[in-house]
């Protein structure tokens, strides 16, 4: 379980950085990208040598067009799933985004996480990756 690779894609730097540090302390190797485009690049670049074991995707951030979009993360989710259908994905969401969370699950996300309690995120990630490991 130790050393597994996680990709965080979120345009809010402080949020992303804090999650990165929290997960790093839990023993994961964490990389951060700040937009859909960057996230896809980082993910593809790692595919061959050391692919990511899990992705944490924000929903509202600059999309592939470069402009801020609601639900841009859903598009990235589909692209990552296309590249790696087995990839566990956690969608970062908010209280008023129930419909988007449902949409994310339909597109293959394993879980959604309401931003704010990073320790709970660590537990969730740990559970998902254990399940992955047990397969």
């Amino acid at each position: 379980m130790q050393g597994k690779k996680i990709l965080i894609v979120d345009d809010e730097q402080l949020v992303a950085r804090s999650m990165q540090k929290t997960l790093a302390r839990a023993g994961y190797t964490v990389q951060v990208a700040y937009s859909c485009t960057e996230g896809l690049q980082v993910f593809e670049a790692a595919q061959a040598a050391a692919p990511f074991d899990l992705a944490l995707l924000d929903l509202n951030m600059p999309g592939f067009s470069g402009q801020p979009e609601n639900g841009a993360g859903l598009e990235l989710l589909s692209r990552l799933k296309a590249l790696n259908p087995g990839l566990p994905v956690v969608v970062l969401t908010a209280y008023d985004e129930v419909n988007k969370a449902r949409e994310a699950v339909l597109r293959g996300a394993q879980a959604f996480f309401v931003k704010g309690r990073e320790q709970a995120l660590v537990d969730q990630v740990r559970t998902l990756l254990q399940g992955d490991a047990s397969r």
């Binding site: 008023d96 704010g116 320790q119």
Partner: peptide, 21 residues
């Protein structure tokens, strides 16, 4: 306010983790 709660929540999200670390 609904949106504000979401936003404040987002912005506050890193604080407990950072403080704890």
């Amino acid at each position: 306010t609904g949106e504000a709660i979401h936003w404040v929540g987002n912005k506050a999200a890193p604080i407990p983790g950072s403080a704890r670390r």
